[in-house]
Simulated scan of single mutants.
Amino acid sequence: MKLVSVWTVAALLPSCLGAEIYVSPSGSDDATGAIASPLKSIQAAVDLATAGSTIYLREGTYSPTTNIQITKSGSAGSPIVLQAYEGEKVVIDGEEMPGTPAELDASLDNDDRGILHIQDAEYWEFYDLELINGPYGVYSRDASNNHYERIITRDNYESGFQLQGAASNNSVFYLDSYGNRDPRKNGESADGFACKEGEGEGNILRGARLWNNVDDGLDLWEFKSAVTIEDTISWGNGVNRWDFSPFEGDGNGFKLGGGGDGEIGPANHIITNCIAFENSKDGFTDNSQTGDFTLTRNTASNNAAVGFKFASAVATLNDNIAAANGEKPTSLSADQISEGNSWDGSESWTDSSFISVDTTLVQGSRAASGLIEASDFLLPKSGEAIGATTHWS
């Protein structure tokens, strides 16, 4: 999805249809919102925006004391866009918001969740934003048809990025989500990316990197519909870097479901060209979720427990690699369909099976497009077309 075109508006108030609205940390909410007279408050710009508006955030750090509530909608042909202006670096710091952090075992009101709190809102696009120290970074509830691209969610006090409830046709491209933790739960729930407690269709996560989060890299807890996950890397999750006691973090790379009795419904997730390494539990697990999963050309390497663990879903696994995981390569029930994977042959896969196991190769900066630099990381020395590659298209 590309950025929408810019509508030029001369000498008109920013509340007009299709306006460009500018915001700056040095602006004023008594200003007009024009480029030479920017607003100060992101919320003020959101309140003014209508279908077709583009809100440009100028460079700097924004420190709102309450979260940014997005509860209106654009339209399919005229979305509302919130983005950094022309490559400028924009950071939204939620440290002064309620719940940063909430006390141990405290509840966090729904309305306080997220630096960006998006609820019952459709046809928004978000680009090039860094969200830090918030009560969640992005929290979207019962919101569909929204697009997020080149977003960073780091060091938040709950999950970095969460879709919850009724959610359809949301696309999240090139997300970096790391260092998120939840002191109020001693690590039980802060994931890099989570899609939880709901259902919908057409949701896609592409090109994400999810690392060093206190719980799981990716968590689809009690989400009953298909999610498509492509070109995503999850590593270093579930490690107690914050000295929580008792520590409750899980640490799966890709937790593809789970929940209580009656809350687990069939979900036909599709996972392609993804990598899980050095997580404190499993690489890929259905976590008791039911449904028909398809996993093609993924790699699980050096996770503390199992590379691929599927017992409740019926997974079709083709051309995947499990190497050097702590307990065993796989734990698969008889219902799973496995063909052409590393464990289907006689060879034992180890670190020496790859051209490179240098993890720094996937930790560099992204290109302007959002792509990471392609490398030989975890490519088989044999040249087989098997496992994941960082040569993203």
Rank of each mutant, 00 (worst) to 15 (best):
D93W: 00
G137N: 10
T153M: 04
E96I: 01
Q83A: 04
N110P: 05
L129A: 08
P64D: 00
S159E: 08
E88L: 02
G137L: 05
P64H: 00
R150F: 06
Y85A: 07
N67E: 11
E125D: 11
V90M: 04
G77I: 06
R154G: 06
F126Q: 09
H117T: 04
I92T: 04
A167R: 05
G160I: 06
S159Q: 06
A76M: 06
S171L: 15
I118R: 01
R150L: 13
P101R: 04
Q69T: 13
V91G: 02
S159M: 08
S78N: 13
V81S: 09
H117P: 09
T153R: 03
L175R: 03
D105C: 04
V138F: 04
S73T: 06
N169Y: 15
P64S: 00
D176T: 14
E158R: 14
S78I: 01
Y148H: 09
G160L: 01
I115W: 10
I70R: 00
A106Q: 15
D142N: 15
A167F: 01
H147Q: 05
I92F: 05
E158W: 12
R141I: 14
N133A: 09
S75E: 08
S177V: 03
S171T: 15
A76K: 13
G74R: 00
T65E: 07
N110E: 14
N145W: 11
A84H: 02
T65R: 08
F173K: 10
D120E: 15
P64G: 00
S78E: 14
S171C: 08
G137V: 05
E103G: 14
R141W: 12
A143C: 11
I115V: 13
E149T: 11
R58K: 15
D142R: 04
F173A: 11
L116V: 07
I115N: 02
S144A: 09
V91H: 02
T71C: 06
V91T: 15
G165R: 08
E125T: 14
V172M: 13
S159L: 05
T71W: 10
R113V: 11
T71K: 03
Y56K: 01
G77P: 07
D105L: 14
Y136I: 03
V91D: 02
G137F: 06
G114S: 03
D109C: 01
F126G: 02
D109H: 07
R113E: 15
R150K: 11
T65W: 04
W124A: 01
S63N: 12
A121I: 03
I118A: 03
S140W: 08
G134N: 05
D142E: 12
I152N: 05
R150N: 15
D142Q: 09
S73P: 00
E86Q: 12
T65I: 14
V81L: 06
S107H: 13
N110S: 14
T65V: 14
N169M: 08
T65P: 00
D142L: 00
Y157H: 09
K89H: 11
A102C: 10
S177C: 03
S75H: 02
N169G: 08
R113Q: 15
H147N: 10
R58G: 12
L82V: 10
Q164I: 07
G165F: 07
N170Q: 10
P98L: 02
D120L: 08
S144R: 01
Q69H: 08
R58D: 14
D155R: 12
E130Q: 14
T71D: 15
